[in-house]
Design a protein around this nucleic acid. Structure first.
Lengths: 281, 281
DNA sequence: CGAAGCGTTGAGTCCGCTCAACTAGCGTGG
DNA sequence: CCACGCTAGTTGAGCGGACTCAACGCTTCG
């Protein structure tokens, strides 16, 4: 049951990575990255790349469990993830960790710190990862130089805000299985955006991280996995998940809260708008 | 029990506002706003105001239930709220409304649309409100003119991201009463930032909106209100809440999930950091 | 080998949702 | 004028799902 899925692209790397192994196969294509890469990964229009300073960016490679930035630390750099996956989290006043997201290729780390000047979330690598140094923020005199970065940063911030809204919408009112399904589908989309399969997922985080992110107990996440596996919708390994029946999964992810019995709680205008405009999957 | 709190600043306006009444007392100080106001409300440093175009900004007044922007609508304007409160929400695929936030003075509406070019949340006024038109986004040729706005927008986006992180942290793993308490404290802070009392809150949204925002049933929110009222921590009116015992409330908001029994789930480094740096209340 | 962490599974409890009924305020229209 | 409908808010009864606690297998690491 827990056997690794054969043919998975990342299968030779499955399992807890060792600190000693230098780099992983899928890191090789991100050993260096240019400004064009950054703009492309961000999803921004290529036009903004023209105004940006060219040349390769400084890179930083991260071993698993390496902390890139600390919560409450002074903002000095903005990073963009070029490979691997990082866990974003905060420590609440009672000492517990709350996972707030997972950063993958194209995610900018440090955007939330622009306001206060301090990072508000810690970022730690879940696997071998590499980030490129987008902007050095320490010296105010360079702020003029950064002018070309504004569109890119603003775009990244907008995308991040959109992601948060989506997260907020999908997590608040759903059962545990549905949250897990949505998480998997969404994570598959993001993984697909970096060139991997969107059906054979490699989960670099453990169950506890998923549970914290979804606001569930880790036992509940585990139970949801086995339940969905028994239903024939998933095939679950320790660090791999294959989406056996994506159609049913998507249907499950959309059908929540039972059926809307009446129009209570619906805005007529909003409802008509929702009916007219096809929702992005 | 449901009597209005005497002496509340907004008490003469309590109840469902009528469409016919022209403007409310607390709107008068925001009939017009300058770029200095905008920069100040945003919390940005005053230095950026110097580079901005001066002169009064175009304003738009909103009656209750007026929709400022529609989800999926083409981005054409960025607004900043100058008075009143707007509800931000999306309609999910099953037609239900999910409240994603409440915009008050200083909130920029439309930031999340910069990426895709379409608003991702609808914004509707919960009371008489006024917004100023920050940037017209429709014509790309003006993008150069908007250069001075970048720092302001980036700052606002960062603050919004921070707010979302906070929301995400505080909502995921807590009981209903604690969520309500946190919501009230946070809302009081934001209300205090606009010049009102942080102990006598006026809630422009109804219970259902709060419930949707917190991911609860509206009956549960109602029960939490009465419970906290019976405990002597709150005094609850229909649209008013007075925080009788802020100290206990804050204590309640912080003490969640019981006590951390062991160091399970704790990062030592992060824990020490959390211990060293005083958390923002 | 023992210790520690991850993942899974089971048993029991409790919190929050669902459904329902009731009150109060407001607007409409006979 | 009052009846009526609608919405918001509150309260109760019952149930189900998720958490808590516990135990166990497995792997990794010192």
């Amino acid at each position: 049951m827990n056997s690794l899925l054969p043919g998975h692209r990342a299968s030779p790397e499955v399992g807890v990575p060792r600190q000693g192994i230098p780099c992983r196969t899928h890191c090789s294509d991100a050993a260096r990255c240019s400004m064009d890469d950054v703009v492309r990964w961000s999803g921004c229009s290529a036009a903004v790349a023209l105004a940006m300073p060219q040349g390769p960016l400084a890179m930083r490679h991260l071993r698993p469990t390496t902390t890139l930035v600390h919560e409450h630390q002074r903002l000095d750099q903005l990073y963009m993830v070029s490979s691997g996956c990082l866990k974003l989290f905060t420590i609440d006043s009672s000492g517990f960790e709350q996972v707030t997201g997972f950063a993958m290729r194209g995610s900018v780390i440090g955007l939330d710190a622009i306001g206060t000047g301090c990072y508000t979330t810690s970022a730690v690598a879940l696997e071998d990862a590499s980030v490129c140094l987008l902007v050095r923020w320490s010296t105010p005199r360079e702020q003029s130089m950064e002018g070309a970065f504004w569109p890119l940063l603003q775009f990244a911030a907008a995308r991040e805000l959109q992601l948060r809204t989506e997260t907020q919408c999908q997590m608040a009112p759903a059962s545990a299985e549905i949250r897990v399904v949505r998480f998997l589908l969404h994570f598959g989309q993001r993984q697909a955006a970096t060139g991997y399969s969107d059906r054979r997922l490699r989960l670099p985080m453990n169950r506890r991280d998923i549970a914290s992110y979804l606001g569930l107990a880790h036992e509940t996440v585990s139970r949801a996995f086995t339940l969905l596996s028994r239903e024939g919708l998933l095939e679950v390994g320790l660090r791999d998940v294959e989406l056996i029946d994506p159609v049913s999964l998507r249907h499950l992810a959309h059908s929540t809260r039972g059926v809307p019995r009446s129009s209570a709680g619906l805005h007529e205008e909003a409802r008509s708008a929702a009916g007219a405009v096809p929702l992005a999957a």
